[in-house]
Structures are given as C-alpha cells and as structure tokens.
Design a protein around this nucleic acid. Sequence first.
DNA 1: GAAGATTTGAGGTACGTCCCTCAAAATGCT
DNA 2: AGCATTTTGAGGGACGTACCTCAAATCTTC
Lengths: 345, 345
Amino acid sequence: MRPTVNDIAREAGVSLATVDRVLNARPGVREKTILAVNDAISKLGYVRDVAAANLARSRNYRMAVVLPDTESQFVQTLAEALKDAAATAAQTRMSVTLLRFPAEDMHALAAMLRNLEGQDVAGVALMAPETPVVRDAVRSLRMRDIPVVALVSDLPNTERDHYVGIDARASGRTAGMLMGRFLGARPARVMVIANSMLLRESIERRLGFDEVMLRAFPQVEVMQTLETHGSATTLRHVVAEMLANTGQVGGIYLLGTGHRALASTLSELGLLGHVVTIGHELTPHTRAALQSGQIDAVIAQNVGHLARSALRVLRAKADRTPIDESQETLRIEIIIRENLPPSHG
Amino acid sequence: MRPTVNDIAREAGVSLATVDRVLNARPGVREKTILAVNDAISKLGYVRDVAAANLARSRNYRMAVVLPDTESQFVQTLAEALKDAAATAAQTRMSVTLLRFPAEDMHALAAMLRNLEGQDVAGVALMAPETPVVRDAVRSLRMRDIPVVALVSDLPNTERDHYVGIDARASGRTAGMLMGRFLGARPARVMVIANSMLLRESIERRLGFDEVMLRAFPQVEVMQTLETHGSATTLRHVVAEMLANTGQVGGIYLLGTGHRALASTLSELGLLGHVVTIGHELTPHTRAALQSGQIDAVIAQNVGHLARSALRVLRAKADRTPIDESQETLRIEIIIRENLPPSHG
DNA sequence: GAAGATTTGAGGTACGTCCCTCAAAATGCT
DNA sequence: AGCATTTTGAGGGACGTACCTCAAATCTTC
C-alpha cells in the first residue's frame, strides 16, 4: 500500500495538520519539524496522490493556446490536434482556450496576451515569432507567475518556461542529408524555396541544410533561397524562371508551405517525379504528395504529440511538478511513402 | 463548472443512487430510466471525473509485462523504458511487474502465464513469438477476463486485445526504400543478415524489403538471408565468406542484432563506411554506430512511447475505457545521424 | 516566571465518485 | 385485490488530500 499523509504523521511523530503545513509549504513550522517530516517522507517513499490533491483543491486549469491566424495547413492541423488533446485533457480538469492572432500583427498579439493576464489563466502556449513586443509580453506573463510554453517555434531569448517542438537547425540538417543521399553522387543544383527568410525557423532550417551540404556533398550546389511570401503565383513564377535559367536542378527543398503550387508547376514543366523534393511538416497536402510520389520525403514533428506535450508541460508547470523529459522531447521525423502513418480520421 | 453526478440526478429527475447504477452498469434499473439518465448525461455534457472515480475505487492495477530473457540490447532498452514508464504509472495507482522467460522455452513461458492467472493481475503485456503454446496461454488469460497486449511482435492469430508496436512489413519496406535510394542508380548487390528466419518479424521485414526492392529498384540484387543464430562468430564468418565470393556488394541490411560484430568485420575488410548499412531499432550500439557513420540508417520504434503506450492500453482495457488510437499508434521512425534523438541518461 | 509570540494538535468540511444497506415505491402476476 | 418482485430513493462511509478554525502546548524574552 502506498503511504499516505497519515502514515507520515505517525512516522514523524507529528500531527496531520503539521504534515499538511509542510507539504504545502505553509508558514508556522519550525525548521526542525520540517526536517523530521521530510525525513519521514523520504523514509516511507511518500508520493503525493496528485489526483486526490487536485480533487481536494477542486482546481480548474484554464490554459490558453495562442496560434497565428494563417490558413497554413500545418497550423490548421496543429489546431485540430490541440482540440483533440484538449478534449482528452478535459478529463483531468483542464480547459483549453484556443486563440488566434492576425499573423503579421504583433501588437494585436501583445494585446491578446495582456488580456490573458487579467483572466485567471493557469498557463499559455504560444506559437509566434520572437519579436521585441512578444518578448515583453512573455516577460510580463512570467512576472505574474503564468507559465509560458513556446510552441513549434522557440523563443530562446525570452523567459519562456519550456519549448515544445523540434530543433529547426537539426531538422534542416536532416533534410540536407536526405537530399544529398537521394541525389546520388553526380553533381546537381538544389533550389531552396521559403515563404520568408525573416522567419527564424526558415533561417535555421536553411543553416542546417547548408551545413550538411557543404560538409558531406560538395558536388551539390545549393542556390539562393527564393521567397514566395506565401503566394502561390509568386512561387510558380520564381520556380519556372529559375528552372528556365538554370541547368542541372536535381532537387528542391521547400522550407515552408506551397507544396500544391510547386507540384502543379513541376507538373506543367514535365518535371514531376524527376526532381528530388523534400519539404517540412505532415499535412493533408504533403501526405497526398508523398503518396503520389510528388514529394520524396518530409521532415516533420508529430503534431498530436506536440499538442499533448504542450498541455502536459503547462500542467506540470502549473502544478510545479517535474517534467518527464524523455516523454516531452519531440523527435525529428523522417517521413517517406513507406512509413507514412495512418491519418486517423 | 463541470457537471457532477448530482447535476445529472437533478436533470434526469432520479436519485443519485440510480445515476450511479447507470453509470457503473449495475443491474436493477429499467430501460426507460437508463435512457433518461443517459439523456441527462449527454445534455449536460457530463464527463466522469476519472481521478475521483479511481480515488473512490482505490483500485490498484497490477500489470505484468513479460519479455524474453535475451541480452539483446533492444530488449534491455525496452526493459529500461518499461521501468521508467512503470515509475510514472505508479502515480496513478498502477504497479508493474517485469517478468522474463527463457527465450527459447515456450513451455516455461506458458507456465509463467498460467501462474499469472492465479494472482490478481489486471493485465498482461507480452513480447513473444506466436507459437501454439503461446496461443493457448493467451486464450486462457482472456477467458479469465485478463486483457492481453502484444508487445513489439504481434500475435495476430490470438485473441490479444491490442498490439503495441510497428508493422514489421512496413518497416521492411521503409528499409528497402532507403536502401534503394542510398545505393543510387548503379547496379549493386545487397546482403541480408538475420538472427533466424523462423521469427515472424524477420520474415515480415524481409518481405517488405523485397517488395520495395523488386518494384522500385530492379537493378539491385537482394541476396539470400544469412542466418547468424545470434552468434557474432557466425556473423563474422558468413559475412566474410559472402564478401569474398561476391562482387558489387553495395549494401547490407541487418534484420536483427549483430551491429557490433558487423562493424568490426567490415572494418577488418576495410569496407567500413563504403557499404550502405541499414538496421533496426535504436540501442546504445546502433546509436553509436550511427554517430560514427558505421550505419547509415536505422528503422526504429520509440521504446519510451512503446512502454507508455502498453501501460496506457492495459489500463484502458482494465477500465473498459476507449483507447485514443492516434496516441497509441507507434510510428515507424527513420533515424539517421542528423535526427538522432538525445539519449536521456 | 510571567507575558507574549510562535508552533503544534485536534477536529471538521469539502472535492467527486464508488459501493453498500435498508426502506419505500412502483410494477407484474394471478 | 393481494402478493411477490423489481425498481428506486435516501443516506452514509470511504478514498487521499486541501484548507480552515480554535485551543493547547511550547518556546522567547525580559
């Protein structure tokens, strides 16, 4: 049988009230008594029954998840995963509010976060680029003891409590290694396409990619990043132009979105399936593209895991409970047609 | 506020006792009343507070995990992961007993499982090859309403409640695709090495591998499987012989264990790093081999996830609670040096 | 050693659910 | 209608913890 607070009281030779005061760090206990209780705790191997504790507290965890308001399939997929995770988390007295901010409007985001401070929010998960305004908002939340978890894109220069997501640089390296090996030994050129090189993630991925290419595949020339600014038309245009003016393009590395536009452009040029294409994130589009052979590999993070992990970490932070690192570390997944996971509705 | 059983009672116009009877499927309630209660439940969106329920039940789940008693690093790693998962699961009143059976002695295993029947075990997770004896033992457990979860290696022709692990055939296909792409366009031969081709897993992996090779890489010749029977000496011998008698060996596919022996053999022959090597499962050995470039890729399943998943599924089965498929589906992971996850102590 | 402050004990209620008992009410059957 | 049977209600104790109050015991300090 697991020891309870009563066992500790008996073992330490104090009353239940004192054990309770020690356990919950309430004042009015002598140092000596605190030590005696802690001794009993470790001697009996007592572990607080969190479920019972939360029941007694009848605590409700209101968590907020803040995502950019883009139509990007990845963000949509993530939002869905978060809803699922929230439904499950409801079983453990957690309620999750999903908020969206206009993607380019950092001040709107800051206002949103400031607003959250007023309400009794137990934690915030945030997917946003690191700008000064965001840094200030995060600091402000932390000052009020509200845990903040960075989602998908890290906020390394803020006081965020935790980052849930994969290392963008390492995922770029992974993409690079696959690209190099898939291209084979012959010299080739690789096109790199991004939405915007102002995004930390794109920069990091590209850095990782280049790192590996330079080191391991010197015969491959990686060209300058083409920016699409999220526009399919621009993507079509720059890709067609680049392909017309450059020979030996053997690979395309898509740092961000635009898989559909890329596939149709390649298809028009009769190149579909003849160029090694590697992208990021598993969405309905990339899934379909993998299945039909339009993409060769996708570097992804498991969004279901991401969502559950974010909520678990927020919860742990709110409870001031330790985090199981091995469970909360997301893996950089390499997905090809052969190991495509089932889609689950 | 979340609705409680009291709210349901009020809403349905019945007493607390009746709501309780319905919720816990106790007898002695008219069909009509059951419907009324269920209506109230769905109307109010009631979700049972599992924590409180378990507290009240003060139920202890004794789970047993049965693994073969091999020194294989994979099994060792899995055992470690299970211990970690068990430690965490202890927080939710679950205790896990880890049992080992002599790898080749199916009758010893059967006796072990029969012995479990006597004790009040709430569930069994089992990693074992599917033999008639095992089939009978599983059936017997199920007859006593003890849930059985197959671990790592499926038991498809038994009445096991669930399988936690990856599809061996699909992981063979994944290995095949990587092998083909890593080899490049030129013709080559691929050696396949297994411990024993009597193991279902080895067969399945090989089938998947061949499938892809035949379809997508006709220029590659996949040779007959060499069996090592777990002996490093045998491995050294057969590999050296095969390499001496066969030209153009560009790749080696290791279906089971033997990474260290293979590396040292290749090293002696001056071939280390010149042959595309693909193996299975992430263990300290394969991790080191990936890091040093001795292996090019490993097809793996996340053992931490595997362990947690097995315990969660057992728990759900014991509680007769639905399973979150998307959380319990293990992914076929492709691991190369660039996306090697951290080792976590 | 007395007054004051600090520390400890005893006891209670609550959280939401399970599970038990016993009596009361409703229903079915002849 | 009367009886047996089934269904329902009312109530209480338990699980392990949190949090509250009030009194008693123990320490300080002069």
